[in-house]
């Protein structure tokens, strides 16, 4: 399996970064390692697929191009070789050589310049894409970092100071060095930057409202338990990571025992162990679990929780399968629209 890069490789123009400061938890991620759940390997991959794909589209990348996922505090990277990059997700107040660069935009970084991201201003996770995607080896079909197993990404771990990251080069880049990138920086004409239209920028914050489909084990909970789940306010605890988010709030009562014979899990599934507090499965969730699942957060809303951080308020709402499907279709349509828009932006620059 290879990266579905629409352009031939160009080994002469790979963007290259040196990590001066890795940030809190910065990992290489893509759409995940699908196909090994039967062996217990989590699909993993991006926490907020929506933000990451939008960021990839800003530099005309395919959705499965690998990018950097930032958690709470961003890294400082020096361009060893020049190239186009894009920022998206949570706004980290990024600067290029000390000058602010807007979030949800693509820009050209000259060799020697330094890109620096600070703490998230809202949300939890930010993304840095480079045109072509980051070049790390495919491990079991994916470039995503699975920290628990030390798998994929950059040696199976988060970025460290001194790491060097290369992009996959692109031939016939419409931008020669000294072209659009430079005029961009020199005359400060913002109309020349590739930016995401404001109306398409996702909003993050508290409270986080999540639509849920009941099941698969809603029948193992007391009716009052289900009612409490949908009518209460929960807080994200400090045990919230790429694997799952443990929430705190009113206890959800089971009918009988809180143990079941283990069965499969999915991203968004809400497990409720004996303590009665919901745990929402995230990207690196285990493939099977032994606690009943009261419901599953719909695909279109999962990114909202991925942008949640400890202390944020979470509320669950029941929803119908048709509503979930329509929301997902709308998401896909919106991404197709953004891709068409970005293609036009890049064509005009060429």
């Amino acid at each position: 399996m290879t990266l579905t890069n629409p352009h031939p490789m160009d080994h002469t123009r790979k963007v290259t970064f040196r990590v001066l400061d890795p940030g809190l938890l910065t990992t290489v991620q893509d759409l995940g390692r699908w196909g090994y759940q039967a062996f217990g390997v989590s699909p993993g991959g991006l926490m907020d697929e929506y933000a990451a794909i939008l960021t990839n589209l800003l530099v005309q990348n395919p959705p499965d191009a690998a990018l950097l996922e930032i958690t709470l505090k961003g890294p400082t990277l020096r361009f060893e070789k020049a190239g186009w990059v894009a920022l998206g997700g949570a706004d980290c107040g990024a600067t290029l050589d000390g000058k602010p660069v807007p979030n949800w935009s693509a820009f050209y970084g000259e060799a020697g310049s330094t890109l620096s991201l600070g703490f998230v201003r809202e949300g939890c996770r930010a993304y840095i894409a480079c045109r072509g995607g980051f070049d790390v080896p495919l491990v079991m079909g994916s470039r995503s970092t699975y920290l628990r197993a030390g798998l994929g990404g950059l040696q199976g771990r988060a970025l460290r100071e001194g790491d060097v990251l290369e992009g996959i080069g692109m031939l016939e880049s419409p931008h020669k060095p000294g072209g659009i990138g430079n005029s961009n920086r020199d005359d400060g004409n913002s109309s020349l930057t590739v930016t995401l239209p404001l109306s398409l920028v996702p909003r993050y914050g508290s409270p986080i409202l999540l639509r849920v489909l009941l099941g698969p084990q809603e029948d193992l909970f007391e009716p009052e338990g289900v009612e409490i789940f949908f009518s209460s306010s929960y807080r994200i605890s400090h045990e919230a990571d790429r694997m799952g988010y443990r929430l705190e709030g009113p206890k959800i009562k089971h009918k009988g025992k809180a143990d079941i014979v283990s069965d499969a899990l999915a991203k968004g599934a809400v497990q409720v162990p004996g303590h009665g507090m919901p745990i929402v499965m995230m990207a690196d969730h285990q493939t099977t679990g032994g606690y009943p699942k009261i419901g599953t957060v719909i695909l279109a809303d999962q990114y909202l929780l991925a942008q949640g951080k400890p202390g944020d308020e979470v509320r669950f709402f029941p929803c119908t399968e048709e509503e979930a499907r329509i929301a997902w279709q709308e998401r896909r349509d919106r991404l197709a629209l953004v891709r068409a828009y970005m293609d036009r932006c890049w064509r005009e620059y060429a």
Binding site: G40, V41, D259, A264, P273, G274, T287, G289
Partner: peptide, 28 residues
């Protein structure tokens, strides 16, 4: 089956005499 973690085996047929419920609050 394998599940929960890469290569984690779920084994059946254990003697009921040593059956013990899970922890109420999982270890981190």
């Amino acid at each position: 089956m394998l599940g929960f973690l890469p290569g984690f085996p779920y084994l059946g047929g254990m003697d009921e005499r040593i059956a013990t419920p899970r922890l109420e609050t999982p270890r981190t």
